[in-house]
Write a protein that binds this DNA or RNA. Structure first.
Lengths: 201, 201
DNA sequence: ACAATTACATTCCGTTTAGTATGTATATTA
DNA sequence: TAATATACATACTAAACGGAATGTAATTGT
């Protein structure tokens, strides 16, 4: 049991350092030696725990990025005591306003990976899709409840609004990255705020 | 003059093939040998015309991607005879509806590059920013005219709407890439349509 | 207590990379 | 027409890459 624990710890270390490097330099620009330099372990350690670079890519998405989306976007949508349009506005606004400078400059880890996907890395695409799907489903659920409660117009297309909110959010993180200017977030939030308010009765 | 022409042709060939490969595989995943295989020229040819990979990256953005944004997004916004909200809706809708399967699967070349930018490639970021700026300024101009004409509400924040439209558009191209499903575009267009309609009087 | 397995470190290998140096045919200029 | 410059091709180098092979100390199961 002690050995198992050590193994798990090492794997977690490699996964975490991999995520950081993928986030900072991109997946393709990060090499396995790069990763192992960060862990202060050897290349042998890497190939003992993982088959190849692709496998660590999958693990980073499935473990780290998945956790970030769950905790940052999906979980906050579960607190449905308040008015739904207000909840939506709060969740998106708070998320954006609490980003660190590093997160502002580096954008969304999931979306960055999407940018690196070509015809080749279809595996990554499929896993990322499942993450966005979880997020989308939660959004749809929340909007539907808002409609039932009479807080959101009955003719609102929940599915359409959900995917559009996700698109807009991913888009602004990308554009903010290029602009490197906080004004982007503020101006975006104003329009997104109007859009969300407009869903309400 | 004949030699100059040949030189220009070769450079254009290298730039075009570079763009295609960057678009399909990403900038980092594309090597100079990769590019030169596509051109059927030698490595010597590459280093005769360009200093290094970074320089071809810059050229691809400045020449090819810039042209795509100008022709695809900025120029169509100049046709301001029609009602402005209608123009905005048409430009974004037509653009999305006319994408080839390849363009749907590969997303926006500019946005893909944004995804690959980390702390390192700040040069690319600055050039890309200037492209988005041109697009944003044209959008602001169009919205302002709409306000003057009384086709768009006076209290609309042109700058905010402009950047939000860009964000939403870039976002949906990213999400469409992950989903690989046409429904995404349709559902997005419904909400974006409502947003744009809501700008009008 | 001993055999087997695990968790790595070290060493090595073939390939690929960015980039340079050199060679050569063609085009231009004097 | 002779000298020069251009447009490449070929051949090379040093470094870095992914990954396999091998070695070893510590931990396990029997």
């Amino acid at each position: 049991m002690k050995q198992e624990l050590k193994s798990k710890e090492t794997q977690d270390l490699i996964i975490n350092k991999s995520f950081e490097l993928f986030y900072e330099k991109g997946y393709n620009a990060t090499s396995i030696p790069d990763i192992m330099k960060e862990t202060s372990l050897s290349k042998g350690a890497f190939y003992h725990h993982f088959k190849n670079k692709h496998e660590i890519g999958v693990k980073v998405i499935e473990v780290i990025i998945r956790k970030r989306i769950k905790e940052g976007f999906i979980a906050p949508l579960n607190n449905m005591e308040s008015n739904i349009p207000k909840l939506l506005l709060e969740v998106f606004t708070n998320r954006i306003k609490n980003y660190s400078d590093r997160e502002k400059a580096l954008g969304c880890p999931a979306n960055n990976l999407v940018g690196e996907i070509g015809y080749t890395e279809q595996d990554f695409r499929v896993i990322l899709k499942s993450l966005f799907e979880e997020w989308r489903e939660q959004l749809i659920k929340v909007i539907d409840i808002g409609k039932k409660r009479g807080e959101i117009k009955k003719d609102v297309n929940s599915s359409s609004v959900a995917i559009s909110l996700i698109c807009a959010f991913e888009g602004v993180r990308s554009i903010r990255k290029v602009y490197d200017d906080d004004i982007i977030f503020n101006e975006f939030l104003e329009s997104m705020g109007n859009f969300i308010k407009n869903l309400g009765i």
